[in-house]
Design a protein around this nucleic acid. Structure first.
Length: 896
RNA sequence: GGGAGUUUAGCUCAGCUGGUUCAGAGCAUCUGCCUUACAAGCAGAGGGUCACUGGUUCGAACCCAGUAACUCCCA
């Protein structure tokens, strides 16, 4: 039976993924084995698979598959997150397309539409993950708004409220006027924006006569005592001004102390107040104070007991309190008021100005600082222990550099605004009494019982639940617990078995949003960390270093990549360029490398498959077999240590080189039988055949976490005998580390150099690889070259291998280790080139010896260096001297 | 403005506690090969002032100080 020349992944992927599912290999239930648990960072229901997910989930799958193959009870819990703002926005948009306005719907009607939307689109990303090979326990798939999950969220809210850590208050919040909800500080992106600074004149009350005088005598309006000038980027908010503030030390304005001024256009009178907050050298030194529309002004207003005049609606249009431009959008109003001010002679000038503006992470709308009644969660009490877990190493951040960032955030954390003015999410379990008081309880019935303590006459109809929902992070903070029902039933078998989970793989951007909050919730509800290791991946960028984004169009479609290079190829490609915690410059060529690797494995398999064991052939590959066994075990040691340090791409590279270089390029070439004409299968001795097949199987195991599909495909080939349905690579146990013959490995390293030099000699003399040559060896080292005669002959295409005591005249020579090698070619050797080569080496060795001797003759080196270092230097000296002697002998031979 | 990080071959990255013949790997490049597993390949080769300047040290890619460029976080 002939097999294809190249590996075609599509079919194998389809076949084995459903096979694994069918045989429940991803399923985990608690048993007596040690658990290994990962909870997926739940992607948004609005999302589609992007490169960040590919990276993140490839890593998780590698970890989970490896754990499974180490005999752990591996459990990877998948799921999605309801993403209140983003999803609500999508649903509103969908309704709009159907001609339905959210305003015309009741809450429950809206939620019906939203659920419909979620059912249709919410699972897309999980389906896409299957194409990647993700071995999640799909039976456990969770959604943050599942009934039990929501109940957990409500429980947590009630719990925190009872402790007094949740409160309600008017605060300046980040208002997203597009989604009409407050967002947390962390969901605001600040960007430098070019703006204009408007200089606006306010008339000082009681100075009318002077104005006339001044205008006659002076054109310097700035100096006028009748006006003061403020600079602002937001002229449309002057109608909300409550005061003008100046620095009490500002000598320019002492005459304004205790005065009042008129707001232009609306002529409302406001006081001039004094506060050190005002910077004298910024703008004009006069600051308009608008408590309703600026955080700093709000605080200033509080200090000076100023009224709060909110002139904006929730969609950022002006309301009737503005008196003018009512109904206009804030930005339209800004343009119009500039004209009005100009016409009224109140606009002195405008200047270009750049400043930081906040944009909503969800909708990209310009954030409007706005006062509103919100729910807050106190942070210091929660943050303190959560910081401890990381600082004392109970929770490890990988790489460690993120500890600093984490600490900084946790030490400076502000109370968390947890309410969102939306419908999609868990509705806050606060119930208002007719008198405006409220109670917090898990259900309306329990709320009524509470309410009765206040007023025994109340009925359930008298209670109104708070309209707001909770921030999505409030629910995802419970994720590692709630997926095992650990919030509602803190002592159930699953949570006790799987929690704390082992590894979390996520992006540094959500270290605070999510990781910190899970640690807080875990500590608060269970007194336990949610996970031990947090592996932080980088951002996937294109090769120009730009973040991949839809708008740039620089992100490849992951599914197309899989189609093009195979899931295994893409997985390898992702990992090849992904150092932990650093951004990765993704380029398709990495996937190509992955695909090529898969093909290499495929072809190596094809070679072995073409063999047939024959008992009549005497075994003669013991050296090769033992050598590869040692190399294999060395690789296992390295891989183990790489995984301990979460250096996945290094572990992959070790595997890659083990397979490609050691196994394919060296081992298979060593044992490969000479081609036998006219037979269907190449005959090979049984010992070699068995060893090779067994090595191949071990290689498949080691490769499996990275390349699950091709390994499973080959695993089931008849080459490995018949397999029971459950005998699959996915659940095979990784090979245990065995003996390493270090002498053999070191010897072969020299042998490999010898072979390379032989090939090189052939190359340099324009000989074909087919030209067999004789090789003479003058061994100065302890290496017994006769032991490696077979290998050298086979790979070097050597006719005759002889050991000699002295230099061979007229032969090409080279040095490997400290041994000398001679190849007698039947052509004249190029004495000039040979001399040049030798002299070059001589120069190098002399220089090298000089530096070694300098060290050895340096008293301070001898006094300070550790003994083993000195010993090493002595060895370097001896080796170099030996080689130098050889080179010089050869040079003399050349001359003679 | 405050803090953190990065800078090593054309590209992406390793390089542990300062000391191996230490300057490495993969990819890319160049040369020669369609050699009965593989041209998605084989065999060879070239390529770096370890960002810069100074310091500590017997010895620095590694430690210290400063400079520059880039990135991220916070205000």
């Amino acid at each position: 039976m002939s097999i294809a020349k190249t590996y075609s992944p599509a079919q194998a992927e389809e076949k084995w993924y459903s096979y694994w599912l069918q045989h429940n290999f991803f399923r985990s239930v608690p048993d007596e084995r040690e658990p290994y648990t990962i909870v997926i960072p739940p992607p948004n229901v609005t999302g589609v698979l992007h490169m960040g997910h590919m990276l993140n989930n490839t890593i998780q799958d590698v970890l989970i598959r490896r754990a499974r193959m180490k005999g752990k009870n591996a459990c990877w819990v998948p799921g999605t997150d309801h993403a209140s703002i983003a999803t609500e926005a999508k649903v509103v948009a969908m309704l709009k397309e159907r001609g339905i306005s959210k305003k015309d719907l009741t809450r429950s009607e809206f939620l019906t539409y939203a659920l419909e939307w979620k059912d249709k689109y919410g699972g897309i990303i999980l389906e896409q993950l299957k194409k990647l090979g993700a071995s999640c326990d799909w039976e456990r798939t969770k959604f943050t708004m599942d009934e039990d999950m929501s109940e957990s969220v409500i429980d947590y809210f009630v719990h925190l409220h009872k402790k007094g850590w949740i409160y309600r208050g008017v605060r300046m919040v980040n208002w997203d006027p597009q989604s009409k909800t407050a967002v947390s500080d962390e969901e605001v992106n600040r960007k430098e924006v070019n703006q204009k600074l408007y200089y606006i004149k306010y008339e000082v009350a009681g100075d009318e006569e002077r104005v006339a005088d001044e205008e006659r005598t002076s054109h310097n309006a700035q100096r006028s005592q009748s006006y003061l000038t403020i600079a602002t980027t937001r002229p449309e908010t002057i109608m909300a001004d409550a005061a003008i503030c100046i620095n009490p030390n500002d000598e320019r304005y002492t005459h304004l102390h205790g005065k009042k001024v008129f707001i232009p256009l609306i002529n409302r009178e406001i006081p001039v107040i004094l506060d050190n907050y005002v910077t004298m050298d910024f703008g004009t030194g006069c600051l308009k104070v608008t408590p309703a529309h600026d955080l700093n002004d709000y605080e200033l207003g509080q200090r000076h007991k100023l009224p709060v005049i909110d002139i904006l609606n929730d969609d950022a249009t002006l309301n009737e309190k503005a008196q003018i431009l009512v109904g206009e959008d804030r930005f339209a109003a800004r343009k119009k008021i500039a004209v009005l001010l100009e016409e009224a002679g109140a606009l002195e000038k405008t200047e270009d100005y750049t400043s930081q503006i906040g944009f909503s992470e969800r909708t990209n709308a310009v954030i409007e600082p706005r006062l509103s009644m919100q729910w807050f969660c106190k942070m210091p009490e929660l943050a303190k222990p959560a910081l401890e877990y990381v600082l004392n190493g109970d929770v490890k951040l990988i790489p460690e550099k993120f500890i600093n960032t984490y600490r900084h955030w946790m030490e400076n954390v502000r109370d968390w605004n947890i309410s969102r003015q939306l419908w999609w999410g868990q509705q806050i379990p606060a119930y208002y009494l007719p008198n405006g008081e409220f109670v917090v309880a898990k259900t309306k019935e329990e709320a009524l019982a509470e309410a009765h303590k206040i007023d025994a006459s109340l009925t359930i109809e008298n209670l109104t639940q708070d309209e707001d929902v909770l921030d999505t992070w409030f629910s995802s903070g419970l994720w590692p617990m709630s997926v095992f029902d650990g919030v509602r039933n803190p002592d159930n078998a699953e949570i006790n078995y799987y929690y704390p989970t082992n590894d979390l793989v996520t992006a540094p951007e959500i270290l605070f949003f999510w990781v910190a909050r899970m640690i807080m919730a875990g500590h608060e509800l269970r007194g336990q960390k949610p996970f031990t290791n947090v592996y932080l991946t980088g951002i996937v960028r294109d090769k120009l270093g730009r973040k991949m984004s839809k708008s740039l169009g620089n992100s490849p479609d992951p599914l197309e990549l899989i189609e093009k290079y195979g899931a295994d190829g893409v997985r390898v490609g992702m990992l090849l360029c992904s150092p932990a915690g650093n951004d990765l410059m993704f380029d398709e060529s990495y996937c190509e490398q992955g695909r090529n690797f898969a093909n290499k494995i495929w072809n190596a398999f094809k070679l072995v498959k073409g063999w047939e064991a024959d008992d009549s052939i005497a075994p003669n590959n013991q050296v090769a077999i033992e050598w590869f066994g040692s190399r294999f075990n060395q690789a296992l040691v390295d891989i183990e240590s790489d995984f301990k340090q979460y250096r996945l791409s290094e572990a992959l590279m070790t595997t890659y080189k083990l397979v490609w270089d050691d196994f394919c390029a060296w081992y298979l070439e060593m044992v490969k039988p000479v081609y036998q004409q006219g037979v269907e299968k190449q005959k090979i001795d049984r010992e070699t055949y068995n060893a090779t097949v067994s090595y191949f199987q071990d290689i498949l195991k080691v490769l499996h976490p990275y390349m699950p599909f091709i390994t499973e495909e080959l695993w089931h080939d008849e080459l490995f005998g018949t397999r029971t349905p459950l005998d699959c690579c996915i659940v095979a146990q990784l090979p245990v580390i065995g003996q390493i013959n270090t002498r053999l490995v070191a010897d072969i390293e020299v042998v490999q150099q010898v072979i390379a030099q032989v090939r090189n000699t052939r190359n340099g003399n324009k000989l074909s690889p087919k030209d067999a040559l004789p090789l003479a060896i003058k061994a100065n080292s302890a290496i017994n070259y006769k032991e490696y005669e077979g290998v050298i002959k086979q790979l070097g295409n050597i006719t005759e291998l002889s050991l000699v005591d002295g230099a061979v005249n007229g032969a090409n020579s080279f040095v490997a280790g400290t041994d000398e090698f001679f190849i007698s070619l039947n052509i004249e050797i190029d004495a000039v080139a040979e001399r040049e080569r030798l002299e070059k080496e001589q120069d190098y060795l002399i220089g090298f010896l000089r530096s070694v001797n300098a060290k050895l003759q340096n008293e301070r080196f001898m006094a300070n260096a550790k003994p083993e270092i000195i010993e090493n230097e002595l060895k370097k000296k001896a080796d170099a001297e030996a080689r130098l002697k050889i080179v010089e002998d050869n040079l003399r031979g050349l001359a003679g």
